[in-house]
Design a protein around this nucleic acid. Structure first.
Length: 271
DNA sequence: CACGATACCTGTAAGC
DNA sequence: TGCTTACAGGTATCGT
């Protein structure tokens, strides 16, 4: 489910239930996801008050009054379920607040993760220290991309998926942004012109912002046990549109494997 | 070091 | 109706 916009939507949804709440029960239902859960997860979080919710790249942050922040990643298939009617085999971690609200972290493929990090040290946490700038912040500029991609021979598509270049872009929005900017995903990153990078940056920001708005517009559905987030309500120009007509020129959208994953693009509009 | 390939896991849909 | 295969929104790690 999750790229940056959905993590942002998830965090905003969680805030409505968790902000200021005290946790009275923290129950792992298996050893962990991609990695084991922290050994002190239950001890640290039980009785803790949630003092803030946040996001960095595709990680969600649940800050507590214990000086520790729970950092979660939804991997490929993770989501939080609010007040599940009944628990399924993929509900791997439960949180219950003092008011009796139950949240379940559900992740069938278990590519996600949960960590505890000292709040004051978050920026120095290894996974965060290596991240590039947030796409919606001032740090993502044509100048930053120019410098970060200089001399790189890997395809621009793969470089944009590298979280050290830009933090939070995933397969969908890289495909969409490259289409909007008219850039061939196969092009060596270091050979993309300054003019093309100047087109690309605002398109990245726009497509991410639009997706967050689309998620935000259906936030009320977040409370439903099997609620959709409105993520798919957004129409894509190229993603998952193999052989369908380009929205701009009508040529069939192509799919090609890059780095073991699919890229969709228009061979006529993207040079 | 940069880069490509592979591994991690389960569910779903398509093909035979 | 089965069985097999390909692929899915991500990241870490291992060769070359």
């Amino acid at each position: 489910m999750p790229e940056l916009p959905e993590v942002e939507t998830t965090v905003r949804g969680l805030a409505r239930y968790l902000y200021g709440a005290r946790l009275r029960r923290v129950e792992p239902r298996r050893e962990g996801l991609r990695r084991p859960f922290p050994a002190d997860l239950v001890q640290v979080l039980t009785g803790a008050q949630v003092t803030g919710l946040g996001r960095r790249a595709k990680y969600g942050l649940i800050e507590t009054d214990r000086g520790q922040t729970m950092v979660f990643h939804l991997g490929m298939s993770g989501r939080w379920r609010i007040e599940p009617e009944e628990l399924g085999k993929h509900d791997h971690l439960l949180l219950e607040t003092e008011s009796g609200l139950v949240l379940a972290l559900c992740d069938p493929r278990r590519f996600g993760s949960v960590d505890l990090v000292e709040t004051a040290q978050l920026d120095h946490w290894p996974a965060f220290a290596a991240l590039g700038p947030e796409p919606l912040g001032n740090g993502l500029s044509p100048a930053h991309l120019k410098q970060a991609l200089a001399g790189r021979s890997a395809p621009i598509k793969l470089m944009l998926l590298d979280q050290r270049i830009v933090a939070g872009l995933g397969n969908i929005y890289v495909c969409e942004a490259l289409f909007r900017a008219g850039i061939d995903p196969r092009k060596a990153a270091g050979r993309v012109s300054g003019a093309a990078l100047a087109r690309l940056v605002p398109e990245i920001k726009a497509v991410i912002a639009e997706a967050i708005e689309a998620g935000g517009s259906t936030l009320r559905d977040f409370a439903q046990p099997d609620g959709e987030l409105g993520y798919f309500s957004k129409k894509f120009d190229v993603y998952d549109r193999h052989d369908q007509p380009c929205t701009r020129c009508g040529a069939p959208i192509r799919r090609l494997p890059q780095g073991g994953r699919s890229t969709w693009y228009c061979g006529k509009c993207q040079k």
